[in-house]
Design a protein around this nucleic acid. Structure first.
Length: 324
RNA sequence: GGCGAGAUAGCUCAGUCGGUAGAGCAGAGGACUGAAAAUCCUUGUGUCGGCGGUUCGAUUCCGCCUCUCGCCA
């Protein structure tokens, strides 16, 4: 049974290409709602540095999956997945066009494939693994993990302590070897089975993206990024590693702690942003099924009314993509 | 002007008790099961400031020069 529900339009691309502006424009024209796929916009108070949609924009077009939790409370893909799928159902049941927009690859993948298993990890196991890591580091974790296997598991980045910890937790919680867990994981059902998904990748040449990012970072600092971090600090956001380590926020914290000169701030944020862009591009190349790739011309800056004109010119092609 | 310190990879620097060099960052590629804007892996030939001298051999020692940074006049 095929549903008459509208397809999900996914707009992905590296940070700063202009996804949001275009998505807003499309949503306005086509009766859509925005579903954010951004691992930082989920935190309340992290507004400037995550380039969150303004209150005005949000009043005009409904936005979902933004401001889902307090900045001191870690949020995970698992939670995102739940909220995003629920939002997707809501939007489609109203007959509106869901437009998912974002640059967080792992979050975006949640629409296409299983990203987490449903294995519950008991707190005792979590603490035990944590303790092994504290006492004997990565080698200790690997010793423990290998002890649970007849052959050392191959499908694991053994240099990545965070991954090894998660793997060990899952093995301890399930009593299964890593390969068995992976097979079971891969057999999980498609998360959005009922939806047609169309993915649009927006790109622009690095020579055009770099100056846009540099300009945008300057604008963020001028708009009060440092004050935003000060106020987040009062809300204890440093207790949350994913918030505290976010691009821009991490560098401002270093500056506030005297580990970095004010003069170096924007340059360091730029460097971190650019390595994010590179990881995003790698992810989009290999991890997401892209239906259509469109490169924005140099002339389209990430500001002003460029989106309206771009959509006027490219709307028909996108229509076609949706009706495919 | 005098004294001192320095000049090595795009940047910050290490090093070679004389046998033509290596880290971090940046850059490029990659991985990805609950922090993913995170975490991790791979990837480094550059007149070792210039010119001479000593030496089988100098980026390394010596002299001169150029530039930079201190301190003193």
């Amino acid at each position: 049974m095929t549903s008459p529900r509208p397809p999900l339009l996914l707009i992905v691309g590296p940070t700063g290409v202009g996804k949001s502006a275009i998505a807003l424009e499309l949503a306005g024209r086509w009766g859509g709602e925005i579903l954010s796929a951004d691992s930082i916009q989920v935190y309340r108070g992290m507004d400037i540095g995550s380039a969150k949609a303004s209150a005005g924009e949000r009043a005009r077009i409904p936005h979902h999956c933004i401001d889902l939790c307090e900045p001191d409370r870690p949020f995970s893909v698992a939670q995102y997945r739940e909220r995003a799928l629920r939002a997707l159902e809501e939007i489609s049941s109203r007959g509106r066009l869901p437009i998912a927009v974002g640059g967080s690859g792992f979050y975006l993948k949640t629409f296409f494939a299983p990203t987490v298993d449903s294995l519950a990890i008991a707190p005792e196991i979590r603490h035990r693994v944590e303790k092994i890591f504290q006492d004997s580091g990565l080698p200790g974790l690997l010793r423990e993990l290998d002890g649970l296997h007849r052959h050392p598991p191959r499908c694991l980045d053994r240099a990545n302590a965070r991954r090894v910890m998660r793997a060990l937790e899952r093995c301890l919680a399930s009593g299964l070897e890593l390969d068995a867990l992976r097979d079971r994981f891969r057999a999980l059902p498609h998360p959005c089975a009922g939806h047609a998904i169309r993915t649009l990748l927006l790109e622009r040449p690095s020579t055009s993206l770099r100056p846009i990012l540099a300009e945008r970072i300057g604008a963020m600092v001028r708009a009060g990024l440092v004050d935003e971090v000060l106020s987040l600090r009062r809300r204890n956001f440093e207790a949350n590693p994913s918030a505290r380590c976010a691009v821009g926020y991490r560098q401002v914290l270093e500056f506030l702690d005297g580990k970095m000169a004010r003069a170096a701030l924007e340059e360091k944020i730029f460097a971190a942003t650019w390595s994010l862009v590179r990881r995003q591009r790698t992810w989009f190349r290999h991890q997401l099924p892209i239906d259509r790739r469109m490169e924005l011309a140099d002339a389209w800056a990430d500001s002003g009314a460029f989106a309206a004109q771009w959509v006027r010119e490219n709307g028909p092609a996108l229509r076609q993509l949706l009706e495919m």
